[in-house]
């Protein structure tokens, strides 16, 4: 977009991409929860496509399915599953936060973001040590 140069200074000139004005949203909890919701959503969607295809191998043969699920049991994929569960748990709790903002009260959105982070930490503490034990002890 060309810069506006003519005329008296307006707020459009003072407000640049480097220096936003008139917003409390940008760069705060609301923006980061939105960014994370989109990134985790895309990641989960592409995993879902792959996961349905690999599960469909049960219809091909037991050997084909076991060969692919064996890949899910390797250390590298075990770390990938940790990242996947981290993304799912954030997306799930933040999705519930969005519903509460829509149907309950938007003024608690900020505190609810920190509740989401807290619940995410608790859930990951319950999952990650146990999962990594299963991955690296077999």
């Amino acid at each position: 977009m060309p810069q506006q140069t003519a005329g008296t200074p307006t707020y459009q000139q003072k407000t640049t991409s480097r220096r936003p004005a008139g917003t409390l949203y940008r760069g705060r909890e609301g923006m980061w929860s939105w960014v994370l919701h989109r990134i985790t959503g895309v990641a989960i969607f592409f995993f879902l496509l792959v996961h349905i295809l690999d599960t469909a191998l049960v219809r091909v043969s037991p050997e084909a399915y076991n060969a692919v699920i064996g890949q899910y049991q390797t250390p590298i994929m075990g770390l990938g599953e940790t990242a996947l569960v981290a993304a799912i748990v954030f997306h799930a709790f933040n999705g519930l936060r969005i519903i509460l903002i829509d149907f309950w009260n938007a003024k608690y959105q900020k505190v609810m973001f920190y509740v989401v982070i807290g619940l995410w930490v608790v859930t990951m503490l319950a999952f990650v040590p146990r999962h990594l034990t299963n991955v690296f002890n077999h």
Partner: peptide, 17 residues
């Protein structure tokens, strides 16, 4: 599938079946 039992390392055709 991932938390009960031995989690991901117990998954195979027989489990899904």
């Amino acid at each position: 599938n991932l938390w009960l039992g031995e989690g991901v390392s117990a998954l195979n055709f027989a489990f899904v079946a």
